[in-house]
Write a protein that binds this DNA or RNA. Structure first.
Length: 624
DNA sequence: CCAGATTGTCATATG
DNA sequence: ATCATATGACAATCT
């Protein structure tokens, strides 16, 4: 069987090669056996087999352990080959199966990833708009001030405006107010701002000396009856003056026209001349609506996010939703473990790859210690895998299993240490199949299907392809050495023995192929790593996106609250203003306007509207 | 038996 | 220029 298989196998190998022709053309291995795809190969194989037989007969079994190539009797040869094949099979098979067991679920599930990602993303994106939308509603409700909120930029600007306003107020406001303002937990500036309840003494404190800009500030102390008289004067002066001042201020500072903001044209028109009491109503209604709308939207989407804890929950939700589902199996583990700092995925990838390569080199030496020819490549891979496993225990594997079940990984993973060594050895090339077989086979067989042996037989062919050739050619050293020795040592080794040209060429081919095999494995592994890292990057980005969205919502909410505060303050102040006659100003006719320097002016409504329009246009246009 | 996955090999590019 | 490695592509094999 084996002979036939072998011969056929070798033939098959050549067959692969439509290439052999190429290889022949290519060069250095010209004369070599495999070169002749056709008839020659079969003849050679036969010869080789004969040689092997003789070789095996000659050689004692005892040497098998040490020198794989030399030992092996005929029967043993076949058996060994089979065993080796089996072991190899067991090797790959076991590893694969074991991995499969552990990983199968993940791996299979993992495949769905790609599909999931889009879904997740879409979900997120959907979520975003919904969240972002509230601002629009706000706009409607809250009037000009709020208008810009939709776009982040607008929000930021408005926010800055509000902040500046608030700061200015805070600056000027009495300490009492400040206390109130900052009495709130230090955590969020926003929260502190919130603390500003409509009730806040600001009214009193505000002592509109702010309004004083024109010099009326002092007069403006709303509360003092006396003030009225003064204000009147000042106010009268102001009013006429206002235009010039306001314009200048606006142009220079871009002062916000509170009146315009809080009193939409409609309201203005409808607003009664009568005093303050009426003011609150329209505003209050607006506020309520705004509040309701915003709250409803905001709360639905994000309210949870507001609290840190809830925010975390949100994150989880986002994560779970966001394509992470694919990870659900693997991501958590992988992320948690290996990803401690997921942010540096790219770096990690590079590092991992580098580590793998480095490890491979080191591993090769180690492997060599175990088994001469040892699966350098495999061992390296296995080790690297181990490392990776160590990092991302469960998480990582699934993906790996998914991508490369059979590959090197499996052995490593399976590897309880003992297994690894054996497996690695067996798998690679030499290791004594017999010993290994006894030990290794049982577990694998138990684990594996019954077909294992058969596969082993078949695998036998593949396994030793080059080994068989080496044996056939009576090459005195192991393939492992051929493949893994440094150039110098390799040359020394060659020089030590008197080798025929055919042997030399075969050795060179074995070395070249072996190295390339390892290189291919590494390359594939690297590819997988890259993919995994990219997946992680995607996850990280999704997470960041979710976080940013939450933050955005929080900012929107805080902004909304700030606007409400400002509104209430405006109402308070405006409602307390009295003209020289002691009567309240009509909101339809007058409005308060903030100047860039922090002063507050009482200006005619028409003017305020104009200014408000000017300011509003740009932002709105900007929006859409 | 087919389809997909895995693996080895070759040719070539790159360092 | 030579060698080692990386990688795409192909084919064989396995599942």
């Amino acid at each position: 069987m084996t002979r036939l298989d072998r011969s056929s196998h070798s033939g098959g190998g050549h067959a692969k090669g439509s290439r052999p022709l190429n290889s022949l053309l290519a060069g250095h291995r010209v004369a070599q056996p495999r070169s002749a795809p056709g008839s020659r190969a079969s003849v050679q194989d036969i010869d080789l087999i004969d040689i092997l037989w003789r070789q095996d007969i000659d050689l004692g079994a005892g040497r098998e352990i040490f020198d794989y190539s030399h030992r092996q009797k005929e029967q043993d040869v076949d058996k060994d080959l089979q065993d080796g094949a089996e072991q190899d099979d067991t090797w790959s098979g076991e590893g694969a199966e074991a991995l499969a067991r552990n990983l199968l679920v993940d791996g299979e599930t993992g495949e769905s990833f790609p599909a999931q990602f889009p879904a997740d993303i879409s979900s997120i994106t959907e979520a975003v708009p919904s969240e972002s939308e509230p601002p629009g509603l706000q706009n409607n409700l809250l009037s000009p001030l709020l208008t810009g909120t939709d776009s982040p930029f607008d929000l930021e600007q408005q926010w800055q405006d509000l902040m500046s306003i608030m700061e200015m107020q805070a600056m000027e406001v009495n300490t009492s107010t400040n206390e109130i303002l900052y009495s709130a937990p230090p955590g969020d500036p926003l929260s502190t701002n919130y603390s500003l309840a409509p009730n806040t003494p600001i009214n009193q404190n505000v002592s509109l000396h702010q309004a004083s800009l024109g010099g009326c500030s002092q007069d403006f102390s709303l509360f003092s009856p006396e003030v009225e008289s003064l204000p009147v004067a000042s106010g009268s002066t102001l009013l006429p003056l206002v235009p010039s001042n306001s314009t200048s201020l606006n142009s220079t500072f871009g002062s916000t026209n509170l009146a315009g903001l809080f009193f939409p044209p409609q309201l203005n028109g409808t607003a009664n001349d009568t005093a303050g009491p009426e003011l609150p109503d329209p505003l209050g209604g607006l506020l309520d609506e705004a509040m309701l709308d915003e709250i409803s939207l905001m709360d639905l989407a994000i309210e949870e996010g507001f609290n840190p804890v809830q925010a975390s929950q949100l994150e989880e939700e986002f994560d779970s939703d966001s394509g992470l589902s694919l990870d659900s199996s693997h991501s958590p583990s992988s992320l948690s473990s290996s990803e401690g700092s997921s942010s540096s995925s790219s770096s990690s990838s590079s590092s991992s790859s580098s580590s793998s390569s480095s490890s491979s080199s080191s591993s090769s030496s180690a492997s060599s210690s175990f088994s001469e020819e040892g699966a350098v490549g495999y061992s390296s891979d296995s080790e690297t895998l181990d490392l990776e496993e160590a990092e991302g225990a469960v998480g990582y594997q699934p993906e790996y299993s998914k991508f490369c079940r059979m590959s090197y990984q499996d052995p490593s993973q399976l590897s309880c240490l003992p297994y690894l060594e054996h497996v690695g050895h067996n798998h690679t090339y030499n290791m004594a199949p017999s010993a290994l077989d006894s030990a290794d086979l049982p577990p694998p067989s138990a684990l594996k299907k019954g077909s294992k042996e058969k596969q082993a037989d078949f695998l036998d062919k593949q396994m030793s392809r080059d080994e068989h050739r080496a044996r056939a050619m009576k090459i005195p050293f192991t393939n492992d050495k051929i493949i893994n020795l440094p150039v110098e040592e390799f040359n020394e080794l060659l020089s030590k023995y008197q080798l025929s040209e055919a042997q030399l060429s075969l050795i060179r081919d074995i070395r070249r192929r072996g190295k390339n095999k390892m290189a291919a494995q590494n390359c594939r592994k690297r590819k997988l790593d890259t993919i995994l890292n990219l997946e992680r990057d995607v996850e990280d980005l999704q997470r960041d996106k979710a976080r940013l969205l939450r933050e955005k919502v929080e900012f929107l909410r805080s902004l909304r609250q700030m606007k409400q505060k400002v509104q209430s303050l405006y109402q308070e102040v405006f409602g307390r203003l009295r003209d020289e006659n002691g009567r309240p100003y009509s909101p339809s006719q007058y409005a308060l306007q903030y100047a860039g320097d922090g002063s507050v002016l009482l200006i005619p409504r028409t003017l305020a509207d104009q200014q408000a329009r000017r300011q509003e246009r740009k932002p709105k246009d900007r929006r859409k």
